[in-house]
Amino acid sequence: MGLYKTPGIVLRSMDLGEKDKLVTLMTEKFGKIKCVAKSARRMKSRFGASLEPLSYVHILYFGKEYQTLYQLNQADIRKSFQHIRENLDKLYRGLYFVELIDSLVTEGHPEPQLFDLLLEGLETLQEGNDLEPLCRLFELRIMAGLGYTPRLDLCISCKLDPGPGELGFSFLRKGVLCGPCTRKYQPETRITPGTLNTLRRMLSIEIRNSSRLKFPRGMEEEIGAITRRMVLAHLGRELRTYAFIKNMALV
């Protein structure tokens, strides 16, 4: 039996039995974990609002090493991201971030860089107003964090500079194709050199500086199609929260 202390972000919180909750957290030290929070649904529970999704908390939990379900002992709120919760546009994007992490990260494997990415993503979402560039940046960076950084400096086929003109992007081979290789291999998507430059910039820019990314009209859709399809190609399914982001714009 071990007692573990770590900062973490609540990804999901589900009712369990009559009074308990099953909480999924992305922790800084131990990666994604699942914990049972006893009596968390009671009105006077010691956990209070700390187990709500998106909360950045400091937790104390115990259990045997390498088991899949731990028992949560304590959770103290560091940041509640209350401002995100009070704005539906921001809330659905925040939930999209946590669903991305929950779907793509395997349990029990420390991923401090992905924890930092999520925390920085939520902090930027709380403060900022340019939500679409932030979402695209988060999609690209989570894939890079998982080891699927797309090759953008050279053509993935002939290994030469992609050069000007119409280019291609292959989700299967995760990278850009130069003009001649695009005509030869007919990849899934065509991109412009401007989009390629923006994608290159997105790999190096800090998440907190996402507001500096300005997508010209038309390029926003092109970049969105690439970053989102990279996630889709890896996951093999659409994320549930994505539909909410789209439908919210209609209300």
Binding site: K44, R46, F47, G48, S50, E52, D76, I77, S80
Partner: peptide
């Protein structure tokens, strides 16, 4: 805060 609760044990969101 719930009636009969204790401020000492309230979290920051509930108190806010």
């Amino acid at each position: 805060l719930p009636v009969g609760g204790d401020i000492e044990f309230a979290d920051s969101v509930t108190l806010q």
